[in-house]
Amino acid sequence: MAELTERQRLILALIIREYIETAQPVGSESLQKRYQLDASPATIRNDMAALTEAGYLRQPHTSAGRVPTEEGYRYFVRQLMGHIDLPADTKRTITHQFYQVGYDPDRWMRLAASVLAQQAKAASLVTAPHVEQARFKHLELISTRGRQVLMVLVLAGGDVRQQMLTLAEPVTQEQLSAAANHLNQLLSGLAPEAISALTTPLDVLEQDLVRLIVEELRHASQLLGSEVYRDGLTHVLSQPEFSESESARKALRILEERPLLEDLLTRTLETTNVGGVQVLIGGEGTWEELRDCSMVLARYGAPGLATGALGVLGPIRMAYGRSISTVRFVAGLLSDLVVELHSE
């Protein structure tokens, strides 16, 4: 693909800016007049034709202006936009809001979702912080009736998981307590990988319990926490791109269907550093539900302590500068708050 000239880069950036504001195709004459460009409308049309040939613009109708393609938005975000920061007074206002709510993680999450939606004019999601690598702390086994047993698993950090088990054959409470005591001594403080690597001889019951414990610990270590906070759905549904119910339904699936959201967050953020921002435009060929959407996502928290995810979802015609700067700033605030909470 040929390198764009400086004027072509400028024209692409201006067309994207105009289209984000108006949702209407952009013509050469209106572009020249509004921004008082040195080039003539004919020259601008030639550059627009070259950008269309390169795959960055498309012409929805024969006589209409141009609109950006997904590739055009990607080029804009990666090559043209540069680093954009929130205004200082906006940062001060948001920071003050967070410190007003005190050390209450639930209120942090709700406020973060509200701030993201309001500032980015998009739908927002925030996952609660969770331990980055779950570790075993304590196990209790309680006989209920017949072959049914309640397994109570306590993780380092205090998270409690309960699961009702149905054993192959009845086991006395004395046998259950003995198995729990043995595993408590053997597994204390271990992560799932370390537990799986153990070579200590175990009886059949203990082997089954260890397998279940490893599954629970791995599940607890996944990026998506137990609680997902959402806000701003009306911002998405009010956009012209989602006037058709089918497009709106697909957009909402991303936020409402937990397995889909878990897959998306895990695959996009698992290898992203805390504070790093990822931009997904049009599903990136992976998620059909995102075909008409863009997402800006980030991890927050403190490595080794607790991390979570946050982001915004909107049409591909998203105000990327504002969205990215808002997501980055709120992620930084939540990271600071997580560190303070765990240092107490």
Rank of each mutant, 00 (worst) to 15 (best):
L310T: 08
T144I: 06
T69M: 03
S143F: 14
A180I: 09
A49F: 01
Q163D: 11
T95S: 10
A179L: 05
S30K: 02
E284N: 07
E53L: 03
V210N: 02
S124F: 10
T172F: 15
L190D: 13
E215H: 15
R322P: 09
R34S: 03
A113S: 14
G27K: 01
L305I: 15
I15M: 04
G314Q: 04
W108M: 14
Y229T: 13
S325C: 04
L297M: 11
G276K: 00
T127L: 14
L190A: 05
G27C: 10
S40Y: 00
R161S: 07
A39V: 00
G157T: 11
T272M: 12
R267Y: 14
S335C: 08
S245L: 13
T326A: 07
D208E: 15
I16G: 02
G308V: 00
L217P: 02
G158H: 09
V26D: 00
I324M: 13
T127Y: 11
A251M: 08
L205E: 02
R267K: 14
N273L: 12
E340M: 05
A123F: 12
A112F: 08
R161A: 06
L139S: 02
R145P: 11
T272H: 09
D47K: 00
S114A: 14
R253S: 14
R78W: 12
S114W: 13
L237D: 12
H61F: 02
T95H: 07
T266H: 12
P25D: 11
Q97R: 08
L297R: 15
E18C: 03
Q79P: 07
H219Q: 10
R9Q: 03
S325Y: 07
A117G: 03
N184M: 13
S30Q: 08
E140Q: 15
L116K: 09
I20G: 05
S325Q: 08
A134G: 03
E284S: 12
T5A: 00
L165V: 10
R218D: 15
L209P: 02
L139D: 03
Q36S: 06
L153E: 01
A156S: 06
H83L: 05
A191G: 02
R317M: 06
H235R: 11
I281A: 07
S114I: 14
S323I: 04
V279C: 05
V126D: 06
K121D: 10
A113L: 09
L261H: 13
L252G: 11
Q8L: 00
H96I: 15
D231K: 04
P192W: 08
A64G: 09
V279D: 03
Q36V: 00
L290K: 10
H182P: 09
R147W: 05
V210H: 01
E3T: 04
V327T: 04
V312I: 05
